[in-house]
Amino acid sequence: MDMQTQTSKDPLVSAGTPLVRFDEVRKSFGALEVLKGITLDITEGQVVALIGKSGSGKSTALRCINGLEKINAGQLSVCGRDLLARNFDLRDLRKEVGIVFQSYNLFPHLTVEQNVTLAPRKVNGLKGAAVSELAAEVLEQVGLSEKAKNYPEQLSGGQQQRVAIARSLAMRPRLMLFDEITSALDPELTGEVLRVIAKLAAGGMTMVLVTHEMAFAAKVADQIVFMHEGRVWEKGNGDMLADPTTPELRQFVGNGL
């Protein structure tokens, strides 16, 4: 799947401009520098998988894209917005960038439909029949149409994670971020969630995944980015996992991490 030539629908992003651009981005937590000059472009329609050992900076890079972490140096633009600009509006960015974490963070006292539509109702003022229509649409996307009236405790872990994905989709994001969303699931439930991501990828959704699922990354991602010690160490398509250029990636793949 190669959708890099797709033109942008966002007036803030001109045709040919990457939807996400890291330019020598650095991020530190106190004295610990986690990102050490990341340069990376993500084009609209691309699926990008970030791989690497724990502590290599993958999740930090992802959180920077959504503004959950503020960069210390370099430049980062997302959906045409400079995240260091004086007039940068974090709320506007988060309307366009959805993120799903390992933990589901669903409200236990709300039904699946209520969880999924909470943000559109509160942020976008969605009302009436439009609420149910939106819930039906995004729950169908994740294969949970029949669970709209259920509560989170009545669902499996895989189903709860799919509800979390539907919740992000309900905001009509331009970009979806997934941070190790299958790491707490058993293999069967992992398969449920990965099939949803594959379906979104086939539909042209721009996505950035932090994952340890190497076979899945090789199959679905347009670009795989191997991070090591806070840097982009190697990047390419799925073939690079079969024929690594660097000993670091060779060791990583060989260890099955």
Results as ranks from 00 to 15, higher is better:
residue 4 Q to C: 04
residue 8 S to E: 05
residue 16 G to I: 10
residue 19 L to A: 00
residue 19 L to M: 02
residue 20 V to C: 06
residue 22 F to W: 15
residue 27 K to D: 06
residue 27 K to T: 09
residue 35 L to E: 14
residue 38 I to N: 12
residue 39 T to K: 00
residue 50 L to V: 10
residue 50 L to P: 03
residue 51 I to R: 06
residue 55 G to I: 05
residue 59 S to R: 11
residue 60 T to E: 04
residue 67 G to K: 01
residue 70 K to C: 06
residue 74 G to L: 04
residue 76 L to V: 12
residue 79 C to G: 08
residue 85 A to S: 15
residue 86 R to T: 13
residue 89 D to P: 09
residue 92 D to L: 14
residue 93 L to S: 02
residue 95 K to I: 06
residue 98 G to L: 04
residue 100 V to H: 02
residue 101 F to C: 03
residue 102 Q to D: 07
residue 103 S to K: 13
residue 115 N to Q: 14
residue 118 L to G: 07
residue 122 K to G: 08
residue 123 V to H: 07
residue 124 N to C: 15
residue 136 A to L: 15
residue 142 V to R: 02
residue 143 G to S: 15
residue 143 G to L: 15
residue 146 E to P: 11
residue 147 K to L: 04
residue 148 A to H: 02
residue 150 N to P: 06
residue 153 E to R: 14
residue 157 G to C: 09
residue 157 G to W: 10
residue 163 V to A: 12
residue 164 A to C: 03
residue 164 A to R: 02
residue 165 I to M: 09
residue 166 A to L: 13
residue 168 S to Q: 08
residue 169 L to R: 03
residue 170 A to V: 13
residue 178 F to Q: 00
residue 181 I to M: 00
residue 187 P to M: 10
residue 189 L to C: 03
residue 193 V to Y: 02
residue 193 V to D: 01
residue 194 L to D: 00
residue 198 A to C: 01
residue 201 A to T: 06
residue 201 A to K: 03
residue 205 M to D: 04
residue 216 F to W: 03
residue 221 A to L: 07
residue 223 Q to Y: 01
residue 228 H to K: 09
residue 230 G to A: 12
residue 238 G to A: 07
residue 238 G to C: 07
residue 240 M to F: 12
residue 241 L to A: 08
residue 242 A to E: 06
residue 245 T to V: 15
residue 248 E to P: 12
residue 248 E to A: 15
residue 251 Q to P: 01
residue 253 V to K: 02
residue 256 G to N: 07
